Amino acid sequence: MTSLEKPNLGTSSVRWRWPSIHPEGYKFAIIAAVISLAFFIFVAEWLGWIGAAITVWILAFFRDPVRTTPKDGRMIVAPADGLVTMIATVAPPRELVGEGALAADPVTRVSIFMSVFDVHINRSPIAGTIARVVYISGKFLNADLDKASEENERQHILVEGQDGMRIGFTQIAGLVARRIVPFVKPGDIIAGGQRVGLIRFGSRVDVYLPAGTAPTVLLGQRTIAGETVLAVAGRDERIDGIAQ
C-alpha cells in the first residue's frame, strides 16, 4: 500500500488540515486585497473591511481539499460538491453521442448544483482515459434550471474506463459563473476522483449514468466530489430516503 492509499479499517495518521488554495484563485484574491487596502487608506475603513471579507471569501471559494476516493471500478463517484437537485431520464447531449461514445438512448442524469459556498474543483467520476472534451459557449441562466443543460455555457467530458464503461458529464456555467477552466484534454489518463477542472462562481454538473444503472443518491442529498458514490455500474435498484 502506497502512502496515498487509505485502508477502510484501523487507524492512520489522518488529521484535519486547512485545505490548500488552487492557484487559479490567487490572482482574484490579490486584486481584492489590493482594492481593500486602497479602501482602508484612501476611502473608508468600513469599505476596507467589506473588501477584506470578500478577499477571504474568494480564498474559500478556490479551496482545494484532499479527497479520498474508493478504488472500485464499478463505483461512479460524484464529480462535484453540491446539492442533488435533479434526477431524470433523458437522452445524453449530442456532443457525447456517437461511435466510441455514448448511445443515444435515454439514461439517468444526476444534476449537482454548486452554490458559491461550495468547493468548485470538479473531479472524474471514474478512472480511465479522457475520450472527449467539448466546450460550447452559451447563456448564463440560473444553473438550477433544467434548460441550463442546453442553453448555458458548458463543457462536456467523456471518460472511458479500462473495462470499456463510458461516463459522460457536463460542467455548466451558472448565473454568476463566467468561465469553465479545464485541467484535462483528450488522451489524458486519469484516476477516479482526479481533478479535471473548475467552474468559477456558482454552477452545476450533470452526470449521465450507464444504461441499467440507478443512482445511489437522493434528491436533496449533498455530495462530496471524489468521495460520494453516485451509482454502482449495473446496479439498477432504486432507493428511497427521508429528509430530517
Rank of each mutant, 00 (worst) to 15 (best):
M1Y: 11
M1A: 14
M1R: 09
T2I: 05
L4W: 01
P7A: 05
N8I: 09
N8M: 10
N8D: 13
R17V: 10
R17I: 06
S20A: 15
P23T: 08
E24L: 10
G25E: 03
A29C: 13
I30F: 13
I30D: 08
I30C: 10
A32K: 03
A33Q: 02
V34H: 03
A38M: 13
F39N: 10
F42L: 10
F42D: 00
E45H: 10
L47Y: 04
G48K: 09
W49S: 01
I54W: 04
T55V: 06
T55Y: 05
W57R: 08
I58Y: 04
F61P: 01
F62K: 01
V66K: 13
R67V: 15
A78D: 07
D81C: 06
G82S: 12
G82I: 04
L83P: 05
A88I: 12
V90R: 13
P92C: 11
P93T: 13
G98V: 09
A101N: 07
L102S: 07
P106W: 05
T108E: 12
V110E: 03
I112S: 08
F113R: 03
F113L: 15
V116Q: 04
D118N: 15
V119F: 03
H120R: 02
N122I: 03
R123I: 11
R123A: 13
I126V: 12
V133A: 13
V134P: 00
Y135F: 14
I136E: 15
S137A: 14
G138T: 09
A143G: 08
A143V: 07
D144G: 12
D146Q: 15
K147D: 14
A148K: 04
A148F: 07
A148W: 06
E150R: 11
E150N: 06
E151D: 13
H156E: 13
H156K: 05
I157N: 04
E160I: 14
G161D: 10
D163T: 08
D163F: 10
G164P: 10
R166L: 04
R166M: 11
G168S: 14
G168I: 09
T170V: 15
T170N: 01
V176K: 05
I180S: 02
F183G: 01
G187M: 08
G192P: 06
Q194N: 06
R195W: 03
V196K: 01
V196Y: 02
G197W: 02
L198H: 03
I199A: 11
S203P: 10
Y208L: 04
L209Q: 02
P210I: 06
A211M: 09
A211W: 00
G212E: 11
A214L: 09
P215S: 04
P215C: 08
T216Q: 15
V217W: 02
L219Q: 05
I224H: 07
A225P: 06
A225H: 02
E227K: 04
E227P: 00
L230Y: 03
L230A: 10
D236E: 13
D240F: 11
G241M: 13
I242W: 07
A243S: 15
Q244T: 09
